[in-house]
């Protein structure tokens, strides 16, 4: 029974002498290769050269600080519950006296971890955040050798205090 008419009849016909020599076929292949010498390469020389990303590219996360340098995250857990890949875990702690400069509110994340191997960069954590603390940046997550090194803690996620180290996310906030 024939289900489709896409089936092909296999032929066992003998090759001609020219075909059996393979030379025209090899030359044809060489010509294709040679043509690509004069074309613009499809790749870039990363990391010397980098592609231009969209303004709203979703790359590595950043935990923002507020204008006074205090961490905005209060470990409310909404990013973790919104995360479809269950990549985010956190442990909260209470702010002690004298730490008002470090943490914005009385609760803060003592541990905040994102497993970059699980993360699918969907941006739902950013959407869920009520404190405008987590954003996805244009930075990409580098490759690594160890699985443990893909679990990003606060040391890799929180932005620096100095103005030069701040990461601009205004493009993502405007949307």
């Amino acid at each position: 029974m024939q289900l489709t008419n896409r089936s092909k009849v296999v032929s066992n016909k003998e090759m001609t002498a020219a075909e059996a020599a393979y030379i025209p076929a090899v030359l044809k292949g060489m010509a294709v290769t040679l043509k690509h010498f004069f074309k613009r390469p499809a790749t870039v020389k990363y990391p010397e050269e980098q592609r231009e990303f969209s303004e709203v590219y979703r790359g590595k996360h950043v935990l923002k600080r507020d204008e006074n340098g205090a961490e905005r995250c209060t470990a409310c857990g909404l990013c973790a519950v919104a995360c479809p890949a269950e990549a985010i875990t956190m442990v909260a702690d209470e702010r002690k006296k004298g730490e008002e400069k470090l943490y914005r509110e009385e609760k803060y994340a003592a541990i905040y971890e994102i497993n970059m191997l699980r993360c699918i960069f969907c941006g739902l954590c950013e959407e869920a955040c009520p404190k405008e603390a987590i954003f996805l940046t244009k930075e990409i997550t580098p490759s690594n050798y160890e699985r443990e090194d893909f679990i990003y803690g606060k040391d890799k996620l929180v932005e620096g205090i100095e103005p030069s180290l701040r990461i601009d996310v205004s493009k993502r906030q405007d949307r």
Binding site: T89, M90, V91, D93, A110, I111, E113, G153, K154, D155, V158
Partner: peptide, 15 residues
């Protein structure tokens, strides 16, 4: 596997 409590974690992650 859950995150350990703050006491048992290496210092670098507590920042």
């Amino acid at each position: 596997k859950f995150v350990d409590s703050p006491e048992t974690l290496p210092k670098k992650q507590l920042s």
